[in-house]
Simulated scan of single mutants.
Amino acid sequence: MVKKNYFLRKFIDHAIKTNGFISRSDNNLPIIMPQSLESEGLRIISWNIYKQQRQNWFSVLNKLVIDKHLILLQEAQPSPQLIKFIISQNLIVDQAPAIVLPQYTSGVMTLSRSHSIYCCSLREQEPLIRLPKSTLITVYSLYNRRNLMIINIHAINFSFGLNIYSRQLHNIEKYIKRHEGPIIFAGDFNTWNRQRTNILKHFTFSLGMKEVNFDIDVRTIIFGYPIDHVFYRNLILLDAEVIKTKSSDHNPISVKFSVK
């Protein structure tokens, strides 16, 4: 029998602070990101996994996470097969569910190889279809005594005008402004027109973030605009690529940073 040495934590619309280990079941998982980040770099994946509805997502995810420190998923459901993956990879998982039904939850999920020291979930309701979208903010301790903030977002999709889309972004602003260390802001931003794209770029630029660009850009395109993005602050970009797959309606993004 596989030893359950992972930790899965789900929460809605609140923040929690963690100090040290959370339960006896995860006593071999670190509370500090490895010191090897200095020489090897910080590797992340961001992927809208489409509720694990397409074939081969499991095998694709297993390949994607090799040597990755953080995996940011959108539209993720803690299905038995995904739990199996979490166990096999010895991961800690925080999820901010957007849709909560008796048989499943679906929302953004951040998987890590070390404990988060702070978590905060935010939700914004779609004005037309009345289903929420969620954002998950997690903070991790680095070996150099700095803290890394990860913001995993699935942005509002269906709306008339830009007010609610802008509000979802600005609800995150206070957390970014309070954080002095490095930041990665990634996910499915649903930037399917020029106005949304401009709002997002102005928002991130005003907070001192840079956008990750790609030599070969095969991100998912809606109405001529890419909808998945990665932004960063106080990190050095080393490498970035978009990986083509038919296992979701989105192509995953792989990025490597230096934390020096």
Rank of each mutant, 00 (worst) to 15 (best):
L37F: 05
V212Q: 07
S88I: 08
L148N: 01
P182C: 09
V255M: 05
K256Y: 01
E173R: 06
K10T: 14
I184S: 03
N147M: 13
T220E: 14
P226T: 03
S134M: 11
I12S: 12
F11N: 10
P34S: 01
I184C: 11
S141M: 13
S248G: 07
N157L: 12
Q103K: 13
I216A: 10
R167V: 00
I45W: 02
M209C: 11
N163H: 06
I176M: 12
Q74T: 06
N27K: 13
K17A: 11
E75P: 06
S141Y: 07
P252R: 03
I129E: 10
V108Y: 04
L162V: 12
F158K: 04
N147H: 14
R194W: 01
V255I: 05
L29A: 08
G224C: 07
S23T: 04
T245Q: 05
T135L: 14
L131Q: 06
S159N: 06
I16P: 00
R233T: 08
D215V: 04
K210R: 14
I151E: 00
T191S: 15
D67S: 14
I99S: 04
K63D: 10
S59A: 12
R178K: 10
I227A: 12
R194D: 10
R123K: 10
L128E: 14
K68V: 15
A15K: 10
G20A: 03
I236D: 11
V212L: 12
R233P: 07
I92W: 02
S46E: 03
A186N: 09
R145I: 07
L64R: 02
H202Q: 15
I117D: 05
V93N: 02
I83N: 06
L122V: 03
S36A: 14
V108P: 01
D217N: 08
N193D: 15
F203A: 09
I44G: 03
L128H: 08
S88M: 13
S258I: 03
N190D: 13
S159D: 07
E241K: 12
E173W: 00
K10C: 12
Y6C: 09
K174T: 13
E40D: 13
Y175W: 11
L148G: 02
V212E: 11
L91Y: 09
Q195L: 14
L122P: 02
A240K: 06
F85Q: 01
P252F: 05
V60A: 07
L237H: 02
K133V: 08
G107A: 01
I86N: 00
S39W: 14
E38N: 15
L70Y: 07
I222E: 10
K256P: 00
V108D: 04
F21N: 12
L42R: 00
E180K: 15
M1L: 13
G41K: 11
Y6W: 15
G161A: 10
M149D: 00
I71H: 01
N193C: 14
H170T: 13
